[in-house]
C-alpha cells in the first residue's frame, strides 16, 4: 500500500508533465486542426532556456522558490516567443493546405531545431546536466516517504492548468480562442483577429511545454536535444486518449498516461512505453473520439 501511494505520487508527477505538454498539442489541434510534431521540441528548448538562465545568472547557487519560479517563467516566455515565430514562419503559410502538409512542415521544423541545437557549439551533441533548482526535502506521512519537490510540481501544475482554464473560459482572448476553434472564418468575420489568437495559442502551448520541460529536467536532470521526441509522442497520446481538442481531456489523459507508465515500469520497465500505446489503441477502439471528446458528425 505504501508502495502504491508512492508510485501514485510519482505517476501523478510524471502525469502533470505529460498533461502540461498535452495541453499544447490539444490547443493547437483545437484551433488549426494540426498535429504539431515539433511540439516536443518546445519542451527541449524550454529546458535548455532554463538551463542557460540558471548557469548564466545563478551559477552554483541554490535558488529560492521565488527565483526558481521566476526562472522557469522566463524560460517559458522565451520558448513561447519561439513558438509564435515557428508558427508564423513555417505553419501560417500552410494554413489552407491539407493538414498533412503542415504536419510534414512540423517534422521539418523538428529535424531543423534538433540538429541546429546539436550543431551550435555552446549546446552541442553531449548531454548537459540540469541544475537542481530546489533542494529536495523528503518527509514522511505515516510510513510513506514523500518528496516535497514532487508534491510541489504536482500542485504547481494543477494551479497552472486551472489558471489556463480560467483564461480560456473567462477572458476575452480565451473566448476568442474558443470561437476560433469552432469556426475560424466565422470568427474572423465577427472581428476576431484570428492570427493573434493562433499566436496566443502557440505562445501558451510552447510556454507550457517549456514549464513541463523544466519540471521534467528537475527530476531527470539530463538534457539532450532529442529529449522532446519521446515525451512529445507520449503527450500526444495523452491528448488523444483524453479527446484531442479538449483541454480537460489533455489533463485527464496526461495523468492517466503518467500513472499507467509508472505503475507498469515498477513491474517491467521495458514494457512501459509499448503498453501506453496499447492503452491508447484500446481506448480508441472503444471510444474513437477519446474519453472526453465529442464525436464529430460530417454534414452531408
Amino acid at each position: 500500500m505504501e508502495k502504491f501511494i508512492q508510485l501514485l505520487v510519482y505517476g501523478l508527477q510524471l502525469g502533470s508533465i505529460y498533461a502540461l505538454l498535452a495541453i499544447g498539442y490539444t490547443m493547437v489541434f483545437g484551433i488549426i486542426r494540426m498535429i504539431n510534431m515539433a511540439h516536443g521540441d518546445f519542451l527541449m528548448m524550454g529546458s535548455y532556456a532554463v538551463f542557460f538562465i540558471v548557469s548564466l545568472f545563478f551559477a552554483d547557487q541554490m535558488l529560492g522558490p521565488a527565483i526558481a519560479l521566476f526562472v522557469i517563467l522566463a524560460g517559458a516566455s522565451i520558448t513561447g516567443f519561439i513558438g509564435v515565430g515557428v508558427e508564423r514562419i513555417a505553419y501560417k503559410p500552410l494554413r489552407n493546405r491539407p493538414k498533412i502538409s503542415s504536419m510534414i512542415a512540423a517534422i521539418g521544423v523538428s529535424l531543423f531545431t534538433q540538429n541546429f541545437f546539436r550543431a551550435i557549439p555552446f549546446i552541442g551533441p553531449n548531454p548537459r546536466t540540469f541544475p537542481k533548482l530546489l533542494k529536495d526535502v523528503l518527509f514522511y506521512v505515516g510510513p510513506i516517504q514523500l518528496s516535497l519537490v514532487r508534491i510541489v510540481v504536482i500542485i504547481l501544475s494543477i494551479v497552472i492548468m486551472s489558471v489556463l482554464y480560467f483564461i480560456i473560459m473567462k477572458t476575452t482572448i480565451g473566448m476568442e480562442m474558443r470561437a476560433a476553434s469552432c469556426d475560424k472564418d466565422a470568427s474572423s468575420l465577427m472581428g476576431i483577429n484570428v492570427n493573434r489568437v493562433i499566436s496566443a495559442t502557440f505562445f501558451i502551448g510552447a510556454g507550457l511545454a517549456a514549464i513541463s520541460g523544466a519540471f521534467y529536467a528537475n527530476n531527470y536532470p539530463v538534457l539532450t536535444v532529442t529529449m522532446g521526441a519521446t515525451l512529445g509522442n507520449k503527450a500526444f497520446i495523452a491528448a488523444v486518449i483524453g479527446g484531442i481538442g479538449d483541454i480537460r481531456g489533455a489533463v485527464l489523459g496526461g495523468f492517466i498516461m503518467g500513472v499507467i507508465e509508472i505503475m507498469i515500469s515498477s513491474v517491467y520497465s521495458e514494457l512501459a512505453y509499448g503498453i501506453s500505446f496499447v492503452v491508447l489503441i484500446i481506448i480508441l477502439l472503444l471510444k474513437p473520439e477519446g474519453l472526453l471528446g465529442k464525436p464529430m458528425i460530417e454534414k452531408v
Binding site: 503559410p93 510534414i104 512542415a105 521539418g108 521544423v109 529535424l111 531543423f112 540538429n115 550543431a119
Partner: peptide, 19 residues
C-alpha cells in the same frame, strides 16, 4: 554536423514553396 540542419530547413522550404 550542419548537414541535417540544412536537410530539415530544406524540407520546410520545399513544403512552403512547393506544397
Amino acid at each position: 554536423e550542419w548537414r541535417l540542419v540544412i536537410y530539415g530547413g530544406l524540407l520546410v522550404i520545399i513544403i512552403l514553396f512547393r506544397p
